[in-house]
């Protein structure tokens, strides 16, 4: 046991010794932002991201600085990155929504089934972290009730325990499914944002191909594949094609 504790302490010490720290750059960026020097603030904060530091507040602040400079595409790109790391932060959600309201492109969504829409709303009622904490809590609760059932000698108590476990198991199943789907989406779905003033959506990944649509700065799309300087994208039901990687930002690239 002593050996195990020593090993744990040593590993913690090593990890803290090599932990990346850019507190001074972050602080300088904050001061520059407050003085209205947004480009300078971006330079300081980018020093942190270049060191591999990924933090929702850092991305959020970068999004704010780009927004102040009128670079809507980059602003939405960093807000989306921050939102991916911390989906429950209300400031990130607010700024992302505000920035998206200023984009030019209106994406026509498919008509929503009211039942599916309600299920979708319930699915997003609790954040992923909240759902995972509930799952842990439920598992501990079920284990405790099972133990109580073992201890208890009264058949009535045992029956009550069985009923409670049944109901809690249903809750556990539903919340596990919801959390599992969220993790699946997080792990498999990649988003992209148009960071240039506009981006041509072409029918094939080369310059000679037909331009199908032109996306405006800040438009968010689903990334299907990436390769050879082109990104295969999908937007809504109708828009599907290729855009140049130089004109867009891939949100998963940061994470």
């Amino acid at each position: 046991m002593k050996k195990l504790l020593t090993l744990l302490f040593f590993s913690l010490f090593i990890s803290s010794a090599f932990a990346k720290d850019c507190s001074s750059e972050a602080e300088k960026g904050m001061n520059s932002y407050q003085n209205g020097q947004y480009e300078q603030a971006i330079d300081f904060w980018k020093t942190c991201t270049d060191q591999g530091i990924e933090h929702p507040d850092l991305f959020y602040n970068l999004g704010n600085a780009y927004f102040r400079l009128g670079r809507l595409g980059f602003a939405i790109f960093y807000y989306e990155s921050a939102h991916r790391l911390n989906p429950s932060d209300k400031d990130i959600i607010h700024n992302l929504k505000h920035a998206k309201s200023l984009t030019k492109d209106k994406v026509k969504e498919a008509e929503e089934n009211p039942i599916l829409a309600s299920i979708y709303a319930l699915h997003h009622l609790i954040s992923l972290k909240g759902e995972l904490l509930i799952v842990i809590g439920l598992i501990w609760l079920i284990a405790a009730i099972l133990l109580f059932k073992v201890i208890s000698k009264s058949p009535r108590n045992k029956n009550i325990c069985i009923g409670a476990i049944f109901i809690l198991s249903i809750f556990l199943g539903i919340i596990t499914l919801s959390a599992g789907y969220k993790i699946f989406v997080l792990e498999t779905e990649t988003k992209g944002v148009v960071t240039a003033t506009s981006a041509d959506v072409t029918s094939a990944p080369h310059d000679r191909s037909q331009t199908l649509n032109i996306l405006s700065e800040g438009t968010v799309f689903k990334v299907l594949s990436i390769g050879n300087g082109w990104v295969e994208i999908q937007l809504g039901e109708k828009i599907k094609g290729f855009v140049k990687t130089t004109e867009v930002g891939i949100i998963d690239d940061l994470l």
């Binding site: 932990a19 990346k20 850019c22 507190s23 972050a26 602080e27 960026g29 904050m30 932002y33 942190c48 060191q51 591999g52 530091i53 990924e54 933090h55 929702p56 507040d57 850092l58 959020y60 602040n61 704010n64 600085a65 927004f67 790391l85 911390n86 400031d91 607010h94 700024n95 505000h98 920035a99 992923l128 972290k129 995972l132 904490l133 959390a179 993790i183 997080l186």
Partner: peptide, 19 residues
Amino acid sequence: DIRFIHPLNHISSKAHAFY
């Protein structure tokens, strides 16, 4: 307008997802 920036006092090298 957008909301104000967040303080960056304790930014760690990696913010892992809880799971």
